[in-house]
Simulated scan of single mutants.
Amino acid sequence: MHPSSHTKKDFPYWLVAIVLLTIAMWGRILTDELYTDVADKLVRGVGVTILVTLIGFTFASLIGLALAVATLSRFIVLRQLARLYIEIMRGIPILVLLLYIAFVVAPGLVYAWNWIAESLGFDPIRTRDFPLLWRAVMALTLAYSAFIAEVFRAGLLSVDPGQVEAAKALGLSGWYRFRHIIFPQAIRTIMPPMGNDFVAMIKDSSLVSVLGVYDITQIGKVTAAGNFRYFETYNVVALYYLMMTVTLSLLLGKVEQKMRAKYP
């Protein structure tokens, strides 16, 4: 029997283990005063984590799609510029890029804005007026746009060129070809890695804590520094991230199945 047939029949014991672990942890949270206090404090950071991820991933996807199209352009300048951007962003660690955006690019943007504002008669702004939260979102957006660009590029290249040429021969517009021929076939290749990148961004959003942004990780650091109960505090921090990532992975799996049924 082919190995894949065994995989399809595998019962998700790993999921059962995670559910039991989660139930045990929540039982501790509901019955232990220290765990309850930590969990209540960390809830305030969940919204920030979700906000950073959703906004960052949305803009990263838009930029990534534009970059993917540029890498496949017939114009060599566009191809080379897109490739340069992608390689630079993929080659710099996200933490380093986060610090660079926050403390180099952001002040530079403020300086440029003030130069333009003064010439137009507007009041200048201070660097501190550029919130650290949005600097973090900008960094994650730029970092992930390069990875997502490669996902889109692979998906677009997976479509049979003969079908695209046939559509051109029929006189179909570029948008019509993309919407009805290219995208429905490319989405099958794009969806799984895009889902993985989304889950990865949730975890990488914890890096914004180095800027003092009050996400789950930062609140956990502050809480642990105050109560000196690192074991209990980081247990809850890990639980929150695990619940979000596993739940999202399961939902994305369902969406992927529906997409495959819609675009077989």
Rank of each mutant, 00 (worst) to 15 (best):
T22S: 13
L242C: 10
Q163V: 11
I63D: 01
D215C: 02
A82R: 06
A143H: 15
P192S: 07
P93A: 11
I219D: 00
L140A: 12
M201S: 02
R260I: 11
V110G: 08
Y100P: 04
P131Q: 02
D129N: 12
I86L: 04
F228G: 00
D129M: 11
M89G: 07
T217D: 00
E87T: 12
D40G: 01
M201H: 06
E256R: 05
A117S: 11
A139Y: 09
V237Y: 00
E256W: 06
A66Y: 15
V213I: 14
S5E: 13
D129C: 03
Y234T: 02
L250E: 12
V46F: 11
H6A: 09
V164C: 07
G220R: 01
A68K: 04
G47K: 07
T7F: 11
Y176S: 13
T58Y: 10
D197P: 00
I125E: 11
D32E: 10
R79K: 14
V236L: 08
M1V: 13
T223E: 02
P161L: 04
Y111R: 08
L120R: 10
T58V: 14
I187W: 06
T127I: 11
I216T: 03
I101N: 06
Y13P: 01
A106W: 01
Y111V: 07
S5Y: 09
F103Y: 15
R126D: 11
L248S: 03
M138Y: 07
M201F: 02
K168L: 07
K9D: 01
A154R: 03
M259V: 15
M191K: 00
L20A: 07
L133M: 14
D215N: 08
A166D: 08
K168Y: 10
T22V: 11
F228H: 12
V151Y: 05
F228A: 05
L172R: 14
L211P: 15
I94V: 15
W113F: 15
W175M: 12
S249I: 08
M259I: 15
L72E: 14
T141I: 03
T217K: 00
L67S: 08
R83C: 03
I88T: 14
S158K: 05
V77M: 06
D160V: 01
A167S: 15
I219Q: 05
A66R: 11
D40Q: 02
T31Y: 05
P184I: 10
A225R: 05
I116K: 06
V48E: 00
G56V: 00
R74W: 07
D32W: 06
P192Y: 02
L109H: 04
V236T: 09
I219N: 06
T22G: 04
V237I: 08
A102F: 09
F11D: 03
A146M: 05
F198K: 04
S145Y: 02
F122T: 08
F178Q: 07
E118K: 04
R260C: 02
L84I: 12
F11G: 09
K254G: 09
Q80W: 12
A186Q: 00
Y176T: 13
P161S: 11
A102L: 05
A24D: 04
T58Q: 04
A200K: 10
L99N: 13
R83G: 15
G226M: 04
